[in-house]
Computed example of a mutant assay.
Amino acid sequence: MSAEAATQWVLKLHENEELRREAEAAGSFEDRQALARQHGFEFCKEEIEDAFKADDELSDDDLDAVAGGSIAMKEANKRAKTEAFIAAASSVAAAM
């Protein structure tokens, strides 16, 4: 059991609407825990409660960054480079 697994489960529920609905339909904590276990996530009740509390404190951007990891960083860097290129091109065009 691990807090990390609980956090990853919460993120998976954000990413997968069908799975989230299935978890919401589960009647008890034990049923939800069994569903998570089927998907490779082991955690105790306290760990998942803490993960959901932390999730409530995260913004959508925070969740995207955590869920996407380095992919989110690469996309942010790509956007920044594109914006810098457009700004430089606009400056050159204005000088002409």
Rank of each mutant, 00 (worst) to 15 (best):
A3P: 01
A3S: 14
E4M: 10
A5D: 04
A6V: 07
T7M: 06
Q8E: 15
W9A: 02
V10E: 01
K12F: 09
K12N: 08
L13V: 00
H14T: 11
H14Y: 15
E15W: 04
E15C: 14
E15N: 15
N16M: 14
N16I: 07
E17W: 07
E17S: 15
L19G: 02
R20F: 07
E22M: 11
E22C: 10
A23I: 11
E24F: 09
E24W: 09
A25V: 08
A26V: 10
A26C: 08
A26P: 00
A26W: 05
G27A: 14
S28A: 11
S28N: 13
F29G: 04
F29E: 10
E30S: 15
E30M: 15
R32I: 10
R32N: 05
R32K: 15
A34I: 10
A34M: 13
L35N: 00
A36Q: 01
A36M: 09
R37L: 15
Q38T: 14
Q38N: 15
G40W: 03
G40A: 10
E42C: 08
F43Q: 01
K45E: 03
I48R: 00
I48H: 00
E49N: 14
E49Y: 13
E49C: 14
A51L: 02
K53H: 13
K53M: 15
D56N: 12
E57Y: 06
E57C: 09
E57K: 11
L58E: 04
D61A: 13
D62I: 06
D62Q: 05
D62R: 02
D64R: 11
D64N: 09
A67S: 09
G68Y: 01
G68L: 00
G68A: 02
G68V: 02
I71C: 08
I71Y: 07
I71V: 12
I71F: 07
I71R: 08
A72E: 05
K74F: 09
K74Y: 05
K74G: 03
N77C: 11
K78Q: 13
K78I: 11
R79V: 03
A80K: 03
K81M: 05
K81V: 06
T82Y: 12
T82H: 09
F85N: 10
F85H: 01
I86R: 07
A87R: 12
A87I: 07
A89G: 04
A89K: 12
A89E: 05
S90Y: 10
S91Q: 13
S91N: 14
S91F: 12
A93K: 11
A94H: 14
A94V: 03
A95W: 04
M96A: 11
